[in-house]
């Protein structure tokens, strides 16, 4: 048990530090690299949860494929280093505003936690009498995906087609 807890905190630490580095780095390439670190931490957490398939997918798809795309985009667009002076007040991502929104969200989460803890009388009590069923192997995962979660799986396709149409509409060149 002690090793479990130790590994959990180690991977959780990697994830949180990675995520913090993503937002604090000035150079976008470093941000992307930190994000890969955070994804590796997450993959470690998934292994701890006995979900090896999700862990592998996390690394192959997120840390691998998607982050490589990110890196290429960052490099091809030649995104400059963020510089405070360049943040124009009218920019929609005007920096102090982004920081303020982030701070507001953090306060919100803290308030939530405070509320939940203040109302709770049984901290550390049994959470779920019967443990959730474990779906860890690829075969089991495939089975529930195409039986119990079939509908959810199909709905995702509508979500994706809407997002694709939107990406094309918003990104294509103006015809005029």
């Amino acid at each position: 048990m002690a090793t479990d807890a130790l590994l959990f905190y180690a991977f959780a630490g990697v994830t949180v530090i990675g995520a913090l580095l993503v937002v604090s780095q000035k150079n976008p390439v470093y941000s992307v690299l930190s994000l890969i670190g955070a994804f590796f931490g997450l993959a470690g957490l998934y292994v701890g949860l006995e979900a090896p398939f999700v862990a592998v997918v996390q690394i192959i798809i997120y840390a691998g494929a998607i982050m490589v795309l990110f890196l290429f985009v960052v490099m091809l667009l030649n995104v400059p280093r963020e510089d405070a002076a360049e943040w124009d007040r009218s920019h929609p991502l005007y920096r102090p505003m982004a920081v303020r929104i982030g701070a507001a969200m953090a306060v919100l989460l803290a308030l939530e936690l405070g509320w939940a803890l203040s109302r709770a009388t049984d901290i550390g009590g049994a959470v779920n009498a019967e443990p959730n069923e474990r779906i860890s192997s690829v075969a089991e995962l495939g089975e529930v995906l195409f039986t119990r979660y079939m509908f959810a799986f199909e709905v995702t396709s509508i979500l994706i087609i809407a997002a694709m149409v939107g990406a094309v509409v918003l990104a294509r060149k103006r015809q005029e």
Binding site: L108, E112, L113, W115, A116, L117, R119, A120, T121, D122, I123, G125, V127
Partner: peptide
């Protein structure tokens, strides 16, 4: 209702 985790879940859903 005494469990903090479920209240946290409820709070996040409210948000």
């Amino acid at each position: 209702s005494a469990n903090p985790m479920i209240l946290l879940g409820v709070g996040l859903l409210i948000v």
